[in-house]
Amino acid sequence: MSAYLLRRVGQFLVVLVLASIAVWAMVYALPGDAATVLAGPDASGPQIAATRARLGLDKPVVVQYLLWVKGAVTGHLGQSFYSADSVSHTLAERIPATVQLAVLGMLLALLIAIPIGTLIALRPRSLLARLSHGYLTAGLAIPSFWLALLLIITLAVRTHALPATGDYVNFWQHPVAALRWSILPAIAVAVHGSCIIARFLATSLSEVMQRDFIRTVRAKGVRESRVVIRHAMRNAALPTVTVVGIQLGSLLGGTVVIEALFNYPGLGRLLYTSIGQRDYAVVQGGVLFVVVVFLVLNLLVDLLYAYLDPRIRLA
C-alpha cells in the first residue's frame, strides 16, 4: 500500500509541476504583456520598456518562472501587476464569492430536484410528473447563459425586481443582501443542475422501490411514507449525492460566462480579466488553484479506491 501511495503522490506532483509549466507557457504565449496594457495606447517605446523593467518582465522567461516557483514553494504566489495585493490575497477574496455562488446554486438545485425526482419516481403517471418531465427536458437543453439573459430581461431590466448584476456580499454578515445580489446567477446555474440531479434521483429511486427489501418492509405493514423516507430514499440518496458532488466540483472551478454576464466577482471572472490583462501571476495562481482542487480530489479518490480494492495497488 505504501509503495502505491508513493507512486500516486509522485504522479500528482508530476502533473502539478507540468500544469504549472503549462500554465506559465500558455500565458507567455499570449501576445503582449502587462506593460503594454498598463502603459496604454499613447505610451512611447522607452516608457513601455521602463514599465516592463519595473514589473520584472524584462528578465528571461525561464528566470521569471523560476523566481515564481521559488516564491510559490515558500507560499508566496507572487503579486498582481495591477494591485498592491498579493495573489494569495486576491484569490482569497474571489474564492469565497465563487464558493458562495456554487453552494447557493446547488442548494437551489436540490430544492427543485428532490420533490421533482421523488414525484417522477413514485407517481410516474400523474399530471404533475408529466409537467416535471417537461421541466427536465427544457432545463437540460437551455444553455445557462441564455437563461441568464432571460432572467435579466424579465426580472431586472423590465421590472426592476432584482439587480441585473451580481455582487458578492458575505452571507453570514448580510444574508438578505447576499441573496439579493446573487440569486439571479444562482438560478442560472441551478436550473441545469436541478435537472441532472432530478433525473438521477428519479431513476435510482424508482429502481430501489422495485427491490425485494422494499416489498418486505411493506409486508411488515410499515406506512408508505415511512417506507419511502426511511428505506427507499436512503438507498437512492447515495448516487444522487455523488452527482451533486460532481456538479458542485465543476462550479467551484468558476463559471466564466455566467460570472461575466452578471459581472459577479468570482474566480471565473478574475481569470477572464487576468488573461485579458496578461496578469501572469494571477492567472498562474488561479488556474493552479483550480487544478490543485481537481487533482487533490482525484488523488484522494484513487487512494481510497485502492484501499478498498487491493487489486489496483498490486497491479
Binding site: 438521477f200 431513476t203 435510482s204 429502481e207 447515495l238 448516487p239 449525492v241 455523488t242 452527482v243 451533486v244 458532488g245 460532481i246 458542485l248 466540483g249 467551484l252 487533490v296 480530489l297 482525484n298 484522494l300 479518490v301 484513487d302 481510497l304 479506491y305 478498498l308
Partner: peptide, 15 residues
C-alpha cells in the same frame, strides 16, 4: 441510471 462508481462518490465527499 448511470453507473456510479465509488470513485465519483468519493469525489463528492471531497467536495
Amino acid at each position: 441510471l448511470p453507473r456510479l462508481s465509488r470513485r465519483s462518490l468519493l469525489v463528492s465527499a471531497g467536495v
